[in-house]
């Protein structure tokens, strides 16, 4: 039981996020009105996605070190769940954009680059599907994964900060933190991203167990 405390913590934190996230009194930041509450759902998705992609790339590196197929399962599962959280982040962001920017899919650099980042990881899955040999698949996809991660950083972290974007926290528009005078946003935000990240890791461990069962003949 002692091993599962963090799952209970994830549930509690997410319950708090959902209840407090919709009820807490938030500062009105320019024309964002109540859509600021998206901060508790949209941003944690990306933090969770980055966590999972980092887990994935670390396991790919470990795989290339020892050629242990178990590490490949860890890497591919983490990438899979990371894509799920990336998609949710994209959807929540687009929903927010619909009411604040006036368009669901805009040509904002932040939105474009995240869509591209997701495509890079979808390509990773396609690459995995295209190779039938288990060892070869693990080796080739680990190499692509390291490559993809190296491209992900400039794509989602550096370029959107260099060009003008309407997204809060970019070169020309300030983030929400400076307007959060009462600290209510951050009071919910920190538990929110911890909760969502824990949820992501939880789903990831479940997927790893499922994949291991699928390949149990190989691992004995």
């Amino acid at each position: 039981m002692a091993k599962h405390w963090w799952k209970a913590l994830a549930v509690l934190l997410l319950l708090y996020t959902i209840i407090a996230g919709f009820l807490v009194k938030i500062p009105v930041i320019e024309n964002n009105e109540q859509s600021t509450r998206n901060l508790f759902f949209h941003v944690p998705m990306w933090i969770s996605m980055y966590t999972l992609f980092t887990i994935s790339v670390v396991n790919s590196l470990l795989f290339l070190n020892k050629y242990d197929l178990r590490k490949d399962i860890l890497a591919s599962s983490a990438a899979n769940v990371g894509i799920l959280f990336g998609l949710m982040g994209f959807v929540t962001g687009s929903l927010w954009a619909t009411y604040t920017w006036g368009g669901t899919i805009t040509n904002d650099p932040k939105q474009i680059s995240t869509a591209v980042a997701l495509m890079i990881y979808l390509a990773y899955q396609v690459l995995r599907m295209s190779i039938n040999d288990l060892d070869k698949r693990a080796r080739v996809s680990a190499i692509y994964n390291i490559f993809a991660f190296a491209m992900l950083i400039p794509l989602t972290y550096i370029i959107p900060r260099m060009v003008d974007s309407l997204h809060p926290g970019s070169a020309t528009s300030p983030g929400f933190k400076s307007k959060d005078t009462d600290g209510t946003l951050m009071m919910v935000f920190y538990p929110a991203f911890t909760g969502w990240t824990l949820l992501g890791v939880w789903i990831y461990t479940l997927r790893v167990r499922y994949k291991r069962l699928e390949l149990k003949n190989i691992f004995k």
């Binding site: 680059s113 295209s130 070869k136 190499i143 692509y144 490559f147 993809a148 370029i159």
Partner: peptide, 29 residues
């Protein structure tokens, strides 16, 4: 990488186009 995956030329486009996009965006600007 594509050469390892059964010399698949279509795969190169699938892998390459998303990855090349940050470079192309920078180059065009």
């Amino acid at each position: 990488i594509a050469a390892q995956a059964n010399q698949n030329a279509a795969l190169m486009a699938i892998m390459g186009f998303p990855i090349i996009m940050p470079l192309l965006m920078l180059l065009a600007s």
